[in-house]
């Protein structure tokens, strides 16, 4: 059986100050993804290697990693695409590392919370009155932004987030836009208070890598640029037509 080498980032905070790389030889099955190889390492070679994973079908968002420098879902990256190796596997960039391939994501979770990712309404419609109507076209206005699986590859790919950690970041802004563009939602003004600040859309310099690495084609870069236009229009409107609000 042909083999391929994985150079895996190791960091054991109870034993060492700085990370090291450890090399493992794994069988190169043609239908194995990086995650299969890591599970092989954990089961057969080294029980101490730590990483997050669950669904292995690209939808739970747990297993994002840097593979040869690119942010990918390790359940969707095939070993054969990295022939002949070695394959360098590291934790997601721009996040503090807890251990091995496990990053700390409290910051991301807090940011998700800040953009109010829920339907904001002045008056809730009683359940007895049935559903809100929403045409397929209205659905498509926001649906692409609703596809985000919170895998954080976009944060790992975003140099702005790396340099300015207070930046709310691609996924959270895309999620805010998901609700802003939903015809059932009335939270646009409330979200603007967060998105239009220095930590919001104006931090973005449009590197565009967030959209490139997104495994679900969410296009957060597009969401942010659209929001910049919307936010600017709203500002001019408030200055030129102060009575319109």
């Amino acid at each position: 059986m042909e083999k391929i080498a994985l150079e895996v980032f190791r960091y054991r905070p109870e034993e060492e100050q700085t990370p090291t790389f450890q090399t493992y030889e794994v069988p190169l099955h043609k239908d194995w993804v990086i995650l299969d190889a890591l599970n092989y390492v954990k089961d057969e070679l080294d029980g101490t290697l730590s990483f997050r994973h669950s669904c292995r079908m690209g939808v739970c968002g747990s297993c994002g990693m840097m593979v040869n420098g690119d942010a990918v879902l390790s359940c969707a990256a095939f070993l054969t695409d990295y022939r002949p190796g070695p394959i360098r596997v590291e934790p997601l960039a721009n996040f503090p590392v807890l251990r091995d391939l496990v990053i700390e994501m409290n910051d991301f979770m807090a940011k998700l919370n800040r953009v109010m990712p829920w339907v904001v309404r002045e008056q809730e419609k009683p359940v007895e009155e049935g559903e809100y109507l929403q045409t397929p076209e209205e659905l498509m206005d926001y649906k692409p932004y609703a596809m985000c699986i919170n895998c954080m590859l976009c944060y790992a790919a975003c140099p702005v987030y790396g340099l300015e950690p207070e930046f709310i970041g691609p996924a959270a802004i895309a999620l805010a836009q998901r609700y802003n563009l939903d015809n059932r939602d009335e939270g646009n003004a409330a979200r603007m208070e967060i998105l239009s600040t220095d930590e919001g859309v104006w931090q973005c310099t449009l590197v565009g890598e967030c959209s490139t690495v997104c495994p679900k084609a969410v296009d957060p870069a597009g969401a942010i640029q659209r929001y910049k236009v919307a936010s600017t229009t709203a500002w001019w409107k408030s200055k030129l037509l102060p009575w319109s609000r």
């Binding site: 339907v119 559903e131 929403q134 649906k143």
Partner: peptide
């Protein structure tokens, strides 16, 4: 649906 689930229409 009221909470925002994107049901197909």
């Amino acid at each position: 649906e009221h909470w925002g689930c994107p049901w197909s229409r």
